[in-house]
Design a protein around this nucleic acid. Structure first.
Length: 525
RNA sequence: GUCCCCAUCGUCUAGCCAGGUCUAGGACUCCAGCCUUUCAAGCUGGCAACACGGGUUCAAAUCCCGUUGGGGACACCA
């Protein structure tokens, strides 16, 4: 298999980039990049595609976002174009004609009804259907005769009916299929347009693809493509069939019905809901492609592309028994087809989140600020453009939040730091439990508020010292005051360290918020 | 239905090709404990798998056969 390494990803323009599809693209890309080869993006569209532009955009955007860049294809040019299958129809037809000429394919004039009848007979007799070739035109005269009968012809492959097709798959090893298991597939329709298997074989050859790395669903299609390629005198590429990404559902079009089924998985639903919650507060549009099977979902809620890439690479591939963290560069260096798994792998949202968390935690604070800021802007929690003070506060919040911010959109969990004091919402349960129910809460909070107004340095260290002195003087436990203060200044029962919270908020906000909480408490009693 | 592919903890996987070092290793989840002002994190410990049945062999997760289960392909879809 001489010649330079060239791989390709050939999606249909469906309007979205599927997680399984992107894994296939990624493996092709990793393989090419690791071996100094080229990665080609070919669009397997058809003439009938409407709004090609619109259907292609999410795919292009998704790949770019992930850093899976292509050397040839839409937007990149290349010497092997055009890169849209619909524009290669002439080549396909020429190949079909050549196949007929060489006796590897034939014109056939059976009607759909006649074919259906043969299929039915085979089925009732419990045997495998193989077309009888009854309406095969062996000569131009035959064609004329059939056409005179008003029949229209298609071109079919003249598949061997004996012998075995053997090939070596780079991930599955030796594969054997009886030739007789293969149908005389149609390669050219009655209207002259060509079908996928022919088009794919021709395009792969003309684009000098050296390794066809694709999903397992194509394994059974390989013999017929080998037949086409060999009949045309093409050199065979190396085939590598990747195991399925066993996400809920198949690679087929996503339907509402299926989405509902995916969401029966607790982890899946949890991820989807987390994303929806982020989208809701950020005012991001949520349509039916906004779900964790679609790459765009991850971009929108603030995943790091390299985290997704890292996780996806490990879905069906591993380097050894322990290495899990890879940068894209490291993946390029270590990836090999030999270590691709044969069994299907399913997407584990929780583990994905763990990878995301690790990659996020590794980013310096400044970068995390930049990643999270857009969500604050979308949610209109900061001015446009954000003031220096706002960015500074964000920096402190990001630092304090630490690994609590897993995806960038998680910053919205801390919206209360950016809300005007008088708009702070209270978590009802927390307010009830920490302020209303404990009888002494109001009184303690009032007294603590006075100390807070007088504390000299409003920083975490001094504040902690102050509060401890406060509790010791009264012989109470820290827990008796701290929870009340937390609810008063953040509205919530949970958050990060109390004293850093107070410091970030600053004296003015803290006092205002405590006053407001006290007033609210008064009103309820 | 026919053909093809696949099968290690709940999940992702290492080990399988070159059988012994595997009372099967790692990671995620889960559980318990520690830490602790809440949450998250962290630390310690724990539960948990070679689908089943035969065979080959001194020895099988590893090799062979069968069974079962899962997936895919069998279109004038891609």
């Amino acid at each position: 298999m001489p010649g330079p390494i060239r791989t390709r990803f050939a999606p249909s323009p469906t309007g979205y980039l599927h997680i399984g599809g992107v894994r296939t693209a990624l493996f092709n890309w990793l393989f090419a990049r690791g071996r100094g080869g080229a990665f080609v993006l070919r669009i397997d569209d058809t003439d009938v595609e409407r709004n090609l532009e619109e259907a292609l955009q999410p795919i292009v955007d998704g790949l770019r976002w992930l850093g899976v860049d292509w050397d040839e294809g839409p937007g990149a040019g290349g010497d092997h174009g055009p890169y849209f299958q619909s524009q290669r129809a002439d080549s396909h037809r020429a190949a079909a004609a050549r196949l007929v000429e060489r006796g590897h394919a034939y014109w056939d004039y059976a009607t759909p009804e006649e074919l259906a009848a043969e299929r039915e007979t085979a089925r009732t007799q419990g045997r495998r259907f193989l077309y009888s070739r009854r309406f095969r035109a062996e000569t131009p005269a035959d064609r004329e005769r059939f056409e005179a009968e008003g029949r229209s012809g298609v071109v079919r492959l003249l598949m061997p009916r004996e012998g075995t097709c053997r090939f070596t798959d780079a991930v599955r090893g030796e594969v054997e299929v009886e030739w007789a298991a293969e149908q005389d597939h149609v390669i050219q329709r009655g209207d002259g347009s060509c079908l996928y298997h022919l088009a794919s074989a021709v395009d792969d050859h003309q684009m000098a693809i050296s390794h066809v790395i694709r999903a397992e669903e194509h394994l059974s299609n390989t013999p017929r493509q080998i037949f086409i390629m060999e009949s045309l005198g093409y050199e065979l590429p190396v085939f590598a069939h990747l195991p399925f990404v066993a996400e809920p559902g198949s690679s087929k079009k996503l339907s509402k019905r299926k989405l509902a089924r995916y969401l029966q998985h607790d982890d899946f639903r949890a991820l989807a809901e987390r994303g929806e919650s982020i989208a809701r507060t950020a005012g991001i549009e949520v349509d039916d492609t906004f779900n964790p099977v679609i790459v765009d979902f991850y971009r929108k809620v603030g995943f790091l592309p390299e985290a997704l890439v890292n996780y996806l690479a490990l879905l069906g591939w591993s380097l050894d028994d322990k290495t899990e963290d890879f940068t894209p560069d490291e993946l390029v260096q270590s990836f090999s087809l030999e270590r691709v798994n044969r069994a299907p792998a399913s997407l584990d949202p929780q583990k994905l989140l763990v990878f995301q968390g690790r990659h996020m935690a590794a980013r310096p604070v400044e970068e995390r600020v930049e990643l999270t800021l857009p969500f604050l802007r979308l949610a209109e929690l900061v001015a446009e453009p954000p003031s220096e003070a706002e960015v500074d506060r964000l920096r402190r919040v990001v630092e304090a939040a630490g690994d609590r911010i897993v995806v960038a959109g998680d910053i919205l969990d801390y919206a209360d730091f950016f809300l005007p004091d008088h708009e702070l919402p209270y978590d009802e349960k927390a307010f009830e439990k920490r302020l209303v129910k404990p009888e002494e809460a109001g009184d303690l909070l009032r007294r603590f508020r006075i100390e807070l107004g007088e504390v000299e340095a409003f920083d975490a260290v001094a504040l902690e010292r102050g509060m401890r002195a406060f509790t010791e003087a009264r012989g109470i436990k820290l827990g008796q005051i701290i929870h009340a203060v937390r609810v008063a200044v953040t509205g919530k029962a949970v958050g990060f360290g109390m004293f850093e919270t107070l410091e970030i908020l600053g004296r003015e906000s803290c006092l205002a918020r405590i006053d407001r909480a006290l007033a609210e408490l008064e009103a309820r009693r």
